[in-house]
């Protein structure tokens, strides 16, 4: 027996919904088993819709999964593409995250009576944002640095985005010190300003000297200073005295002004 194929008119009627249930049933059952008729009915299918769905399907298949961090950042108003740049932590940054977690755990677990533990914690805490910022950019920590350097995206913007994760981590550390270190919340606020000042200086100088060397030098200088004041005056709190806070604040303001001026100049010459 010759295989039966539905003619184009019947299929067009089917596609339009002009067939009764019995014949619709018949056609649909037939289509399940006949490739030729499926090809014929394709002629009366909705072409633009099919093209659109294909493009959307490909898009869904290729779409990289959006991480929780990206969702949070987009929710607070960052553009999705910027959120993507900010949320992909390099392995160096991940290592930094783990060390911060360790530092926090250490602060929580260490007995309160051990003064030297607290002292070292206070000495090291301002360095946390410095290192976090230093790891955001540069040939030492970014495996695809050269490709990044050859791209038009604003370098400063990229560093700031990649350093965004420094903020919650520093904040968490502030919380931890507030809860565990004797002296409470005021203590935790005290080391914040030096930390910010050091980070700002890192940002300002990294373009010329490289992030890691600058961060290393500043970290060393800070440790020497803090330990020096401890040795000299008997308590590390001198390193957080009002004079120091003022210097840090001035540094921050100076760096910000300088950066703004630099951008203004760059804007003028383009």
């Amino acid at each position: 027996m010759i295989a039966w194929h539905a003619d184009a008119q019947l299929l067009a009627a089917y596609a339009d919904g002009r067939l009764d249930l019995a014949r619709t049933t018949s056609v649909e059952q037939h289509l399940l088993g006949c490739g030729t008729c499926r090809a014929t009915v394709a002629a009366v299918a909705d072409r633009p819709l099919l093209d659109r769905v294909w493009a959307e399907t490909l898009d869904v298949l290729d779409r990289p999964p959006v991480s929780a961090a990206e969702r949070i950042l987009t929710a607070v108003g960052l553009a999705p593409s910027a959120a993507r740049l900010a949320s992909k932590a390099s392995s160096a940054q991940r290592a930094w995250l783990w060390s911060c977690a360790l530092l926090a755990a250490f602060a929580i677990a260490a007995p309160r009576t051990e003064g030297w533990v607290i002292m070292w914690f206070l000495v090291l805490a301002p360095l946390v944002p410095v290192i976090g910022v230093a790891l955001a950019y540069g040939p030492d920590t970014d495996p695809m640095h050269e490709v990044v350097a050859a791209a038009p995206y604003s370098r400063l913007r990229l560093i700031l985005l990649r350093s965004l994760l420094v903020i919650p981590v520093t904040g968490a550390l502030v919380l931890v010190t507030g809860l565990t270190v004797p002296g409470g919340p005021t203590m935790s606020a005290l080391w914040l300003l030096p930390g910010l000042a050091l980070s700002a200086m890192t940002l300002a100088l990294e373009a010329r000297l490289g992030a890691l060397p600058v961060a290393a030098a500043l970290s060393l200088a800070w440790i020497v200073f803090a330990v020096g004041t401890r040795v000299g005056t008997g308590t590390v709190m001198t390193a957080y005295g009002p004079a120091v806070q003022l210097v840090c604040l001035t540094t921050l303001v100076a760096v910000a002004a300088f950066a703004a001026y630099g951008r203004h100049q760059a804007g003028r010459s383009s």
Partner: peptide
């Protein structure tokens, strides 16, 4: 895909 997409963002494809 993610790698090339990342570079594309750096090339200002927002």
């Amino acid at each position: 895909f993610e790698y090339v997409d990342y570079v594309a963002i750096l090339k200002e494809w927002a």
